[in-house]
Write a protein that binds this DNA or RNA. Structure first.
Lengths: 239, 239, 239, 239
DNA sequence: CATGAATGAGTATTCATTCAT
DNA sequence: TATGAATGAATACTCATTCAT
């Protein structure tokens, strides 16, 4: 159920919507529908969206059910009505977050580009997605602090990621064949490197800004790091 | 119990001290002092050590004062006596963690090595330190989730990091002059890249293992990633 | 679902109707009426029946309005529509329960039997009724825990019981005159003794089974206790 | 405050202590000890005593932890400190209740009396105990409403009751041998009959008073019923 | 008549912190 | 210095009841 909401109606900009808010907005935009007062779907989405932010910002333990209810502008009781409890809500948020990024990624269509262009597209997309969805990184951080105890329960999470690995694999093979990339690269390692460079900068910029006395939240620093990631990855792939 | 872990096997590896304890232990090693710490000091250290683990594992919000007291085998009241409260204890843990890694780093003495060897040493040290001190990464993760709100209060944290930047700068300059590295590299970006690749793998391995169905906690995977970091950094530095 | 249980196995035993439903069912048996109750009536009965079970099993405080609605397979709103609220529903259940047992009792027609036979019939009927209607005892238990605060409000409850006392009185008088019973027995005390022996065994068999390590829910134990009640009562009445 | 009620009017009856309060009282009586402010034992007993009343009056589901804390004049947190939670506290109350009645009973020393006197003593004791300890009956009622789900967990509960059965058995045997009682009586059935007549009157007097319009809480009615129990039991035992 | 979303006042439990000894 | 009892303010979750459709 939560899935539907996340993946539907996204046209060009791949990583633009905040998790759990996109379709909701479409509904409210639709001119024929009046904003219903008793709208189960809307309420449920508002909860998921608010929960995503709260969990991302506060972590699982730090997140407050009351705060989620307040952010979602709903009665706390509804949260239990729709999701059953804090745990189940968190799992919904977690799965929804992965579905959202993988869905956006899937729309990149890397197969029809040159290996170099495809790889650049993937790197840039990932960086932009991380940048536009701070909640996603927050959720990952939280989940890893708990050693993925909730994610492990999810059966379909591996299947969700197979296409990504396949696609990167394809890029690397084609790139190696064309002499653009050096052969023998592990697609998972490549993806992890891209993610590492992007994720670390964004999640750790607060302490990094402090210890290096350098405001890494400035646009120039952010843009510069985005280019840096591309350079690092391509330096590594260079034959 | 927690003590055992703290004092175990420290011979060569430079970053071996438990977070927040290194400088104190030197004092206790001094031959003029009796080997056993005074109770006050011992208690205080036990609290700090236990707190470091608890905060790292549970985050600030998830950490329990009772749990820290129990881990430290001390009465909860002592914690307030020595540190004032949860907040102050957390700050002590945070500062101690940075002091510990920087102290260990300082012992590397990169200036007397060739740029290539020095850089390799720095990369390997950082990776090993992260590997041996999971609490450090946990603390950073927690602190960044709170946008470094506690770290910002610390006055001396920037000074603590100046030598590191200077040392890397020196390496890069010498490397560029010798034709080993390409010129114009930003030392902070270099350090952040090293840290990003190491930190991301270790902190995110739980979700990564799940989504890629690949046990990244295995020794072979860990060793392989360590080599990967070196390769990536040197590929980037290659002229 | 709840209906199935209600209608099962009722052939001879006169007190067969589910508590609170007896008089209504007679209406439905009437040949001039269609056999299927109108929805309103059916809904209302389903609620009453479900509520009887819920209150009996959980007590007033433990009973859940949601649980009653679910047992009755009706929308929770209907419960408020037909009965006004939890309190009023409980009162309806309580009164219905008394009406049911007294109605069944009235059908015994003790006046046309010999005193001994009549008394035996009353004892056996009471025991069987308690056995077949655990809800009745549960309701009584609940109501007494609240010191009959709801029952006191009922105006007609005393009138409902006058015939019972009169009937037992008649039996005792005729029995004393015939030399079967000793004279001067209090009909209320007699009834209370019968009820005490039956009720206590059934309601308290759970703890009694545990403390005496003897399964009092077994048929043999139950039958044996039924005979015991008869023996005790007749021993007491013996001139 | 709660103490006054408990200890009132008890001169000879051996089962005078309310669960968990006897030793406490001794402590407070001791002239050398001042009433300590931080008295773990006292607090723990106050909680147990308050909980016994609350559970007895309200049932498990109806009992409120806040109400128990208020009755005990302690901070609610202490309840969790000493007992762990509502469940565990209830179990403590339950076991304590049984221990209290059996301990009092054990002091009767029925073995050194004639069978008739011993039996009368047992009946009178039981009736008096029930009368003086309405909480005990309330707890039993509650526990049976839950089909003894908590009591079943108690390992020592059966052992606690063996001496009682043995003692009654002895009385019956000696009585039968002396020609006072008819032979072949089941001691458990005898005890259950005594308990049934006493318990039913006291727990059900609220509804009974209402339906028969007769105030069974009056002293005369209570005394009269006490004699009635003796008569019934002896009528049954009569050879 | 019927549905189920919505609500506010509770209800058990936990937590950081302080107090008395 | 050390101990553990005590506290009040949260915190997750539940319940009877009402509202909009």
């Amino acid at each position: 159920m939560s899935q539907a909401k996340i993946t539907k109606g996204r046209s060009k900009s791949p990583g633009a919507e905040t998790v759990g808010e996109s379709s909701n907005q479409e509904v409210s935009r639709s001119p024929t529908e009046r904003p219903r007062l008793r709208d189960a779907e809307r309420t449920s989405k508002a909860i998921l969206s608010a929960a995503t932010k709260e969990f991302a910002e506060q972590g699982y333990g730090g997140a407050r059910v009351d705060a989620i209810a307040e952010r979602a502008k709903i009665n706390k009781r509804m949260l239990y009505h729709y999701f059953g409890g804090k745990d189940a809500l968190y799992v919904a948020v977690l799965e929804g977050s992965y579905v959202a990024i993988r869905s956006a990624e899937a729309r990149l269509d890397l197969t029809h580009r040159s290996p170099t262009e495809g790889m650049r597209e993937l790197v840039v997309f990932t960086w932009k997605y991380f940048l536009d969805h701070p909640e996603f990184l927050g959720i990952l951080s939280t989940e890893n602090m708990h050693k993925a105890r909730f994610l492990k329960r999810s059966a379909r999470i591996f299947e969700l990621h197979s296409p990504l690995v396949a696609e990167i694999s394809g890029l690397l093979d084609r790139g190696a064949a064309a002499g653009d990339f050096r052969p023998g690269c592990d697609p998972v390692k490549i993806y992890m490197s891209i993610a590492a460079l992007g994720s670390f900068f964004l999640t750790n910029r607060w302490t990094l800004s402090t210890i290096f006395r350098r405001n890494l939240s400035e646009k120039s620093e952010i843009d510069s790091w985005g280019e840096h990631i591309v350079e690092v990855i391509f330096a590594y792939l260079r034959p």
